[in-house]
Design a binder for these strands. Structure first.
Length: 114
DNA sequence: GCTTTGACCATAT
DNA sequence: CATATGGCCAAAG
């Protein structure tokens, strides 16, 4: 069987996005990570941009910052925002509540004087 | 085969 | 919180 690495990777990414439960969101890097492709965040974006898989909850995929990956004046932006709200995801000004990344150990240990 | 582009990410200012 | 910079990878010209 001709298992193409790139094609196989795309398949895993799509599977990871499909595994996203309604009401939850994840960043491109997060999706790539779950797909077993750490550091391929851009690949996930390209996949959604080039390939439009039907039934794929692409609207649950956001940036790491929790912001929509589309420009505020793009149709995709409005579309994603509306879909997220329809699933119970509070979207404000194109931003979604995302858990902050843990602070650096240096900041945690040497940051606050103690 | 090099250059450009892209629904990105992390860090620093 | 916004902007700027460097890095990363893969597809198209």
């Amino acid at each position: 069987m001709a298992s193409d690495g790139t094609n196989d990777a795309a398949r895993r990414i799509l599977a990871a996005i499909r595994a996203l439960p309604a009401g939850e969101v994840a960043g491109y890097g997060e999706v790539a990570r779950r797909a077993g492709l750490p550091g391929r965040a851009r690949l996930v974006a390209r996949l959604l941009s080039t390939v439009a898989e039907p039934g794929l909850p692409w609207h649950r995929v956001l940036r790491s910052d929790g912001r929509v990956a589309f420009p505020p004046d793009s149709d995709g932006f409005v579309e994603q925002c509306a879909r997220l709200r329809a699933e119970g995801v509070p979207v404000a000004n194109g931003r979604v509540r995302m858990p902050r990344r843990g602070p650096s150990l240096d900041e945690t240990l040497w940051g606050p004087p103690g």
